[in-house]
């Protein structure tokens, strides 16, 4: 089976005044289904840029980004949007919940955008997802009534409710205290195992990094190192391990 993400010699340049900033200078990366990968690196290293390209919210200046077999540079805005809607879930650093909608509505929103489910089916899916992130008692609360950790859990539920093949999280723990942050990573890891969803997240927190099955280090727009961790031996690693095995040449 083809990898869920395939990146080949990708260059991304941004104009900055008269200068051109090269955020990525020839990156090759392949991520298999079911992996729990972190992209690490210092600020300005290009990790967010890489994540944007994988998340189809941006396209490369040159090179190929393939998501589930679709090359993003060939797609128009509408098709990219559809790709995001059906295959990718997002978890943001600042949670980015829709403040005027309550918890249930926030989680339900991607399903509504997708369409195709009955009201009952949607409700089942949403309740199930909210239950998994442990927020059933807060189902009708608005984001401003929730704590940071709770909000990020809502975001996780929202990202996963459509059963995407790939979930992207940009510094998901940066705005949380360390205990909550670890709990969120645990939750993501759990979802990764249960739903066999591929997770890619960026972080520069070594403690968070430890939980990943694969750590890709980016420095100055290039992949500096790409390593599998001990995490493989942990009980949760079984599913991840299978994915890795498939990806092996």
């Amino acid at each position: 089976m083809a990898p869920i993400v395939r990146i080949e010699n990708v260059v991304k340049e941004y104009p900055l005044g008269n200068l051109v900033v090269r955020a990525l200078q020839g990156v090759d990366l392949s991520i298999d289904r079911g992996e729990f990968t972190t992209i690490a690196g210092p600020s300005g290293s290009g990790k967010t840029t890489l994540l944007n390209l994988i998340g189809c919210v941006d396209v490369p200046t040159s090179g190929v980004v393939e998501i589930d077999g679709d090359s993003t540079s060939k797609l128009h805005d509408k098709e990219l949007t559809r790709l995001r809607l059906h295959k990718i879930g997002f978890i943001f650093q600042s949670f980015n919940l829709v403040s005027v909608l309550d918890l249930f509505q926030n989680v339900e929103f991607p399903l509504l955008l997708q369409g195709g489910l009955t009201k009952k089916e949607r409700e089942l899916r949403v309740r199930d997802m909210v239950d998994k992130v442990g927020l059933t008692p807060q189902l009708r609360q608005r984001p401003n009534e929730l704590s940071g950790g709770q909000r990020q859990r809502v975001a996780i539920a929202r990202a996963l409710v459509t059963k995407p093949k790939l979930v992207l999280a940009d510094e998901p723990t940066a705005n949380l205290d360390s205990v909550t942050g670890l709990a969120i990573i645990e939750l993501m890891r759990e979802m990764n195992a249960k739903e066999s969803t591929t997770f890619i997240f960026s972080t520069h927190d070594p403690k968070v990094m430890e939980h990943a099955s694969r750590i890709v280090h980016i420095v100055d727009g290039r992949i500096h190192s790409d390593e599998r961790t001990d995490f493989l031996s942990s009980p949760l690693a079984e599913t991840g391990g299978r994915a890795e095995a498939q990806a092996a040449p």
């Binding site: 949007t81 559809r82 995001r84 997002f90 829709v98 955008l113």
Partner: peptide, 13 residues
């Protein structure tokens, strides 16, 4: 941000 988030999540223009 709100609009960008919706767009990222897959909301069309």
């Amino acid at each position: 941000t709100e609009i960008g988030t919706l767009r990222a999540m897959g909301a069309q223009r």
